[in-house]
Each structure stands twice: as C-alpha cells, then as structure tokens.
Design a protein around this nucleic acid. Sequence first.
DNA 1: CAGAATCCGGTCCGATACTG
DNA 2: CAGTATCGGACCGGATTCTG
Lengths: 131, 131
Amino acid sequence: MTTEAAGWVGNGYDPQCPTRVLLDRVGDKWTVLVIGLLSDGPMRFTTLRDSVGGVSGKVLTATLRALERDGLVNRTAYPQIPPRVEYALTDLGRSLQEPLAVLRGWSEQHIAQVVAHRAEFDRAAGIRLQF
Amino acid sequence: MTTEAAGWVGNGYDPQCPTRVLLDRVGDKWTVLVIGLLSDGPMRFTTLRDSVGGVSGKVLTATLRALERDGLVNRTAYPQIPPRVEYALTDLGRSLQEPLAVLRGWSEQHIAQVVAHRAEFDRAAGIRLQF
DNA sequence: CAGAATCCGGTCCGATACTG
DNA sequence: CAGTATCGGACCGGATTCTG
C-alpha cells in the first residue's frame, strides 16, 4: 500500500484517492438504493425500476452500467424475446453492505440533530434578512 | 424512531431519508477533505484553503457554510482588522470521523479491485467498438 | 422487456473581480 | 484576511420518443 493510497486526506484534491472514488460511486442519486434492493437477491430491470420508484429507465441503466463496470454488480442477459436481464450483487458489491450499514447507523443516530441545526440556522438567517 | 426513518431503502427515493441526507452531505467535492483537515484542530480560512489545495474561496466558503448550517463545524470570527475566522469541528462533526474511517477502510482494501474491473470493462467495450 | 437517442433544465464548481 | 458578486462551463438527472 502506497503512502498515497493510505492518505485519508493526503494533501490536495485527488480524484484517484480511494475514499474519493468510493464517495463518487456512492454519492449519486440511485446507487445506494439499488445496492440495497439487490441485497435481497437478483432482480430484473423492470422490477428494479418499479421497486426503486421514480427513476427513469435511462438513469437506472446508467446506474447499473456503472455498477457493472466497477465489478459491484453482475448483469446476466437471457437470450429470449422479450428480453430478460437480471442484475445481482457480486461478492465485491456485497462487501459494500457493511460500510453502508455503518453510514446508516450514524445517520439514524445523528441526522435529527443535523436537521435541527439546519432549521435553526435558516431561522436565524431569516431573521437577519427581516431587519 | 419511525419505520420510515429506520428504512435503509424503504421504497422509492426519499430526500428526507437519513442515509440520503448523509450521502448528500458527504458526497460533494470538498466536505470530507475539510473534515479530515479540521480533525487536527481548528484552522483559519486561508490556512484551510491552502491546505486543501485547489479549492476556490467561493466554494470553500459554501462548503464551510453548509457544514456550519448542519452543526458539524463551528465558525468563530474574531473582531480584528484584518479579520480572523477560525473553523473547528463540533462534537457532532467529530462523531462523523468514525463512519468516514470505515469508508476509508473499505476503500483501501477494495478500490484496487474496482479500478481493475473498470479498466477491464473499458477495454472490453473498446474492443467491441473496434470491430 | 430492456434498453438507446435526444433534448433540456438545474446544480456544482472554477475563475475573476471586488470589498470591509 | 475573509469573504461576496457575477459569469460561464460541465455534468447530472428527468421526460420523451423510438427499437430489437
């Protein structure tokens, strides 16, 4: 492991930083939702789209393509008409569940405080604008 | 804790979902870097900007403002000329270090595989375009 | 059914210039 | 020193339409 790879923050912004790569992967709108749903087992494209809810086909395709590209999800197309395509987590993808569960744990414990701070901050800023 | 608040994935996209709020907070370009730097102690604005490297004043201000709004960072302005402003993690902000460390741990163990998959996927896609 | 193609608005971010 | 104001480019994601 290089010093660079070990650096949480190193110095300067580095798109190659491992933590950065993960955050970029996981920070988008649908990825974590999709991983969560696939945790229960393989799913077909349309089932996934309906389960996620509110995602367009184009964007779900892009999300899945990116997950597949990174080796987190496997895509299996059955040569039928109409087509049948199944998506499933890989071992690597499943290994992500633990860190994500930790994030979830922190969120459930602390997000209420964040939201409260947010409201108070906005209220205070609002007052300043009023006078 | 409501069922909704407990749901990792619940059903459908929910901007209020605790995990979602956290991901949105932490998924942007500079936040994690800033938190990492502030872990060593309070820092002044310019010191922070120089340490982060590559961030514009405007964006760093926005990042810090958002962190302050959420109660993760404290802003202290000393009434001097020239001004002196210090930023420090709050207890809430410090509590984020642990989950972030978990993310970092996963990244350092697995990102190499992700990058490898990525390269292989792109290579395979490239071949398909060639013929 | 599982997408690809296109268009389009909103947001993120950087660069620059200015100020108390 | 620590910002604010303004502009512009890039990217993300949504809606719609079309296809094997």
